[in-house]
């Protein structure tokens, strides 16, 4: 018996999910951040964020098709974290690092928060 592992399968699946998002195929929720709107797949949001996991496992909220986030959330920070969810790449612009970290705290993305902390400490002169 043999087993073949396609080592790039996970990243290929993620790339296709991101293609589905950009073509708005089977996206099932709109995330409202201040006046900006982001279409996404609930399953991808739940897989990446503790906050969305809690929201969409709540039987009263799992059928919502629009979620407004706290107005303190920065839309640019959210956009960068949503891109990270679908690409595994976190773009850290100097001017946005705090907005990204605060949004990751809000979204309960602890591993991203820890990584941002380490990045800030390592880049402190």
């Amino acid at each position: 018996d043999s087993c073949i592992q396609f080592t790039r399968h996970a990243s290929d699946v993620l790339l296709n999910l991101n293609r589905l998002r950009s073509r708005d195929i089977l996206t099932d929720v709109t995330i409202l951040v201040n006046r900006q709107q982001f279409r996404a797949h609930k399953t991808v949001l739940m897989a990446c964020s503790g906050l969305f996991y809690t929201i969409f496992t709540d039987s009263l909220k799992c059928n919502l098709n629009a979620i407004s986030l706290d107005p303190k959330v920065d839309p640019e920070g959210f956009a960068i974290l949503l891109e990270f969810m679908y690409t595994s790449r976190l773009t850290l612009k100097e001017s946005l690092i705090m907005a990204i970290m605060n949004t990751a705290i809000y979204l309960q993305m602890d591993h991203v928060v820890d990584t941002c902390h380490r990045f800030i400490k390592s880049s402190d002169p």
Binding site: A47, C48, Y53, M85, Q108, M109, H111
Partner: peptide, 21 residues
């Protein structure tokens, strides 16, 4: 992502969804 300094993070990136609640 050309021209961007890319740091490879080998650690866990996201939470783990429990097998059951």
């Amino acid at each position: 992502y050309e021209g961007v300094n890319t740091i490879k993070e080998m650690g866990r990136s996201i939470h783990e969804i429990p097998r059951q609640e």
